[in-house]
Every structure is written in C-alpha cells, then in structure tokens.
C-alpha cells in the first residue's frame, strides 16, 4: 500500500514532465505520401514544432543526398511543414529528421522514391496479323482474277459456238 502511494505521484510526475517538454512526448515527423514516383512532391510535417519558435529544419538523407529543407507553412493539423520536389532524386528510401526552431528534435520518418508508372515488359514486335492480312489480300486478288478469267473464257467459248 505504501509503495502504491509513492509510485502514483512518481508516474504522474513523469507524465507531466513529458507534457511540458516539447519535442519529446509530442515529437513526430510525417511524410505524405510515403511513396512517390520520382518527380513527385511530398509534404514534410513536423507536428510537434511550435511555429512561434521559428522555422523547422528537415534534414533529408538518402542514397546520394543530404540536404536541409526549411519549413514554409504552418500545418493545418498543427506544427510546421514544407514541400519537397523529388525531381532528380535517386530511386530509393530517404529519411527525414526534423528539428524545431527552438533546437529540439522532432523525430524522423521515411519515404520512398520509385520509378514512374508500370513496367513495359512486353516485347513482341509483330503479332502476325499484318502478315495474315497481306496474305488474305493476295488470296482475294488471285480469286478475283481467276473469276474474271473464267468468265472471259466462258464468253469466248460461247461466242465461238454461236
């Protein structure tokens, strides 16, 4: 019983401390969408940063990149955000770490830059239909010629017998 009396205030103190320390319990960074074709735009958001403390800095690291992006707007749901245009990015997964204006870290998130669209994985160059059509045309021409020839011959024979 005595132990419980000690533990409850201690737990409450820890929870209160976490609430009072911005960038720890509330720290969170998001990237939306988490997957984008190369050239697409992702929105980086540091939800735990207070806009009054100044701009947040997003550090973007990945396959061949290490760049900082400064927040440009206050996020609708709270915090600060920036847009990142991925043109020229190497394909792969990138990590975004945010630091608030007051210097506190605001967690990290990842996003993936992918190829554009589907795969062109069909390789046939002639489906035979063209060859088939040409052959059918030649056959039809031959048939037409044969019919005309037969008619002419019949006329010639008829004329000769009369």
């Amino acid at each position: 019983m005595k132990a419980r009396r000690v533990l409850i205030p201690a737990a409450g103190g820890i929870a209160l401390g976490a609430l009072l320390l911005p960038g720890t319990a509330l720290a969170d960074t998001t990237v939306s969408p988490s997957t984008t074709p190369v050239g697409g735009t992702v929105v980086l958001t540091a939800t735990g940063c207070n806009p009054k403390s100044g701009d947040a800095i997003f550090r973007v690291t990945g396959p061949d990149r290490d760049q900082n992006v400064r927040s440009t707007t206050a996020a609708a749901g709270g915090g600060l955000s920036a847009e990142l245009f991925t043109a020229g990015f190497t394909l792969g997964t990138y990590t975004v770490s945010a630091t608030c204006g007051d210097g506190t870290a605001d967690g990290s998130a990842t996003f993936t830059v992918t190829p554009i669209g589907g795969a062109e994985a069909g390789g046939r160059d002639d489906d035979g239909a063209g060859t088939l059509a040409t052959g059918a045309t030649l056959l039809a021409t031959a048939l037409g010629g044969a019919v005309i020839l037969a008619r002419r011959r019949r006329h010639a024979v008829t004329a000769a017998t009369h």
Partner: peptide
C-alpha cells in the same frame, strides 16, 4: 498470287 497469299496466311497464322 494465290501461292504467295497462301504462304503469307500460313506464316501469319
């Protein structure tokens, strides 16, 4: 013409 046509139809098929 008929022979060529038949050959092409066969190839196409």
């Amino acid at each position: 013409l008929a022979v060529a046509g038949l050959a092409l139809v066969g190839t196409g098929l």
